[in-house]
């Protein structure tokens, strides 16, 4: 399986994703420069975290105009697997590849810590290796992860099982106290209509090695690899 990690100016988790895919998953991986327009060589595209273009206008707002994003949109439209992590999620929202938008965390501060998220739908390309309701311990690190969307969108997301991860307590309870950023319905990750596009605020690449304190993030990588192989 060949992954492409998209590098925007200001991305800063691209090397982390590359490291995990290459050294931990032992899959093929390349960096995809933001000016590249051909992504046909890849089985899965990763939009990594960071501060693309400094997040100066609004998170992801400038990156969506990078030449590569048109290729990413075409890739996704043809059913290609795309995962956006943190800033990558924000870019997918700005690009309209996922519905909704991000607000600043209710604390108005950047928050970096381990968070617990519950798998709300284990029957997706991104979560099939996890159990329904399984609690994953994965770090978050963002200033704008307060997800929001209009009522109709939220209803559709819930109805179609496209809310993939929710912030929860260590016991799996989805509560206001367990919500680190004010995100509506404690949403931490959602999928697009075809489930091939996945955006999430937690960083699975930061929870993919024992030495870093959690390997729960591996479930996400392993899911997409299993999905890819089952698809043949």
């Amino acid at each position: 399986m060949r992954f492409g990690v998209v590098v925007f100016p200001g991305s800063n988790c691209e090397m982390d994703c590359h490291h995990v895919i290459d050294k931990v998953l032992r899959e093929d991986v390349d960096y995809v420069w933001h000016q590249q327009t051909d992504v046909s060589a890849y089985d899965c595209l990763v939009l990594p975290g960071g501060f693309s273009y400094g997040d100066y206008l609004r998170c992801g707002a400038i990156a969506r105009f990078s030449p590569v994003m048109e290729a990413v949109a075409d890739f996704a439209a043809e059913g290609g697997l795309v995962i956006g992590i943190c800033n990558g999620f924000q870019i997918l929202l700005e690009a309209g590849l996922l519905p909704g938008a991000m607000l600043r965390n209710t604390s108005l501060s950047f928050i970096c810590r381990f968070s617990s998220v519950r798998v709300e739908n284990a029957d997706t390309p991104w979560t099939n290796a996890a159990r329904q309701g399984q609690v994953l311990r994965v770090p978050i690190a963002h200033g704008e992860g307060n997800y929001t969307a209009d009522e109709a969108t939220l209803a559709a997301l819930a109805e179609e099982g496209r809310i993939i991860l929710r912030y929860c307590g260590e016991d799996g309870e989805v509560t206001a106290a367990a919500n680190p950023n004010g995100s509506v319905d404690n949403i931490a990750g959602i999928c697009g209509e075809g489930f091939n596009v996945f955006g999430l605020m937690p960083h699975p690449e930061r929870a993919s090695e024992e030495i870093l304190g959690s390997t729960d993030g591996l479930l996400i990588w392993e899911s997409v690899m299993a999905h890819y192989r089952s698809r043949g």
Binding site: M15, F110, I111, E205
Partner: peptide, 11 residues
Amino acid sequence: VYEQYDHMVQL
């Protein structure tokens, strides 16, 4: 304080 700093990036 330190939770406002990204203390994990670069793995």
